[in-house]
Nucleic acid binder design. Structure first.
Lengths: 236, 236
DNA sequence: CGTGCTCTTGATAGTGTTCAAGAACTGTGG
DNA sequence: CCACAGTTCTTGAACACTATCAAGAGCACG
């Protein structure tokens, strides 16, 4: 797992500002800029594993990453899918604990590593940043409470519709924009997100196709009728 | 738990710092609470509702509180059960959003209200407190990621065993201490924690009784064999 | 001692999983 | 560019698990 195909370079300040502008805003933190390096990762590369210790945080420049937990039988549960602009791994770093989850690229991904001391330093000298971090943690908690409720109460069909709604954002799907892009996940990953068996997932995708909610192009899933899909999701 | 002397702005903030220094788990809180505005609540009283705005945080002096989300069909999903010593509601307050969940007493409960400005004041004058808050948020996130994985992957039987393991702590059950206390939740609440129907829950409790994992006294559930129960839970 | 709520039990139906086997796709080396 | 090997995807059938519905029992509280 230690293939060093990655190539690093120091980033320009403006780049970092650009990256982080939408999420946690680190733009005014000088220290962070110094040791930031960019890495290019291939598909299916593990960034960190559950149970290991964080050495810093990662900021995603491009690509998509799955955050998952491995269950008893080795079956993964996907907790979240992150995309460019997202910050990753700060939670475990801040609580000084092991990663409670693992991270793996879903496609070719570029990310920027910010060493722990830089990030901590920035936080202690900048209460706005601290506030942002807390807000981000809170947001995650809200989403997770929702996930718990959905998983505990809704049938698979509704959960799948809900997951597709979420993935519309993750994969920047613009309904008006035709078929150019789509949700590009393996059936297994999607099943591990929804919390079901791959076979069940496939059968439901067929139902959705029959109901003209989606279309598929090989592995890719295209959203045909977002409104109707939302109804199927039966959101709270 | 390292302590750093800090300059408190008011007497009240100083007290709050004192309370919160040891972590969000407020073990030494009781002396302070004598002077504060304490509220005594009966069983089944709602403290705050999902969708409303926080005005401060609550610290639980005695009693137990369920944190829950209401699903589509009005069915509650219990996310967490808090007990004396726990701090409640800081998440939504810090992120300046609506409560994503509701809180209701499970039994007679005493709690102390800390207004928003006092808590924020304490945090801004005390970086250790801020750190503790972040750690607590992180801990919650870890627990929730676990819950998601369990709900998505494990059958009800294992989830129930796991829930009982958690409730052993919530209800301070000491195996050596005989039958004096037990888990005191309605069957419905327990079902809403595990994510199943009340009837299914009852049948499984009978199985556990038959297998001598637990005993029941009316509503109360007593743990007979914690080790075996842990095995049934099939924890990761 | 009712009255309303919680708890319990049985029967039935529905939902989702598992197993097995084949098809389709992907990437690789010749 | 093709053949091959390994994944991934798909489909069917049987079965297991869990929910739902209905109805009665037990309990707590006024």
């Amino acid at each position: 797992m230690k293939r060093k195909t990655s190539h690093s370079e120091t980033m320009q300040n403006s780049e970092i500002e650009e990256i982080l502008f939408g999420g946690i805003d680190l733009s005014r933190i000088e220290e962070i800029h110094k040791n930031s390096t960019q890495k290019k990762l291939k598909k299916n590369q593990i960034i960190f594993l559950e149970g290991t210790r964080p050495l810093g945080v990662y900021s995603i420049t491009s690509g998509r990453i799955k955050i998952y937990k491995t269950g008893v039988e080795g079956k993964d549960q996907i907790i979240q899918i992150l995309k460019s602009g997202d910050l990753m791994g700060y939670r475990a770093m801040l609580s000084e604990e092991q990663y409670p989850v693992s991270a793996e690229t879903l496609e070719e991904t570029t990310l920027c590593f910010i060493p722990k001391k830089d990030f901590i330093g920035a936080m202690s000298s900048n209460s706005d940043l601290t506030k942002e971090v807390i807000k981000s943690l809170s947001k995650d908690l809200t989403n997770m409470a929702d996930s718990i409720t959905v998983l505990a109460q809704k049938p698979v069909r509704e959960r799948l519709a809900g997951a597709l709604m979420v993935l519309i954002d993750t994969y920047d799907i613009d309904e008006s924009k035709g078929v150019s892009n789509g949700i590009n996940l393996t059936r297994e990953d999607l099943a591990n997100m929804v919390g079901t068996a791959t076979e069940t997932l496939i059968r439901l995708l067929h139902d959705f196709k029959y109901e003209q909610l989606i279309e598929t192009q090989g592995r890719k899933i295209l959203i045909k009728n977002k409104e109707k899909l939302k109804k199927v999701a039966n959101l709270i």
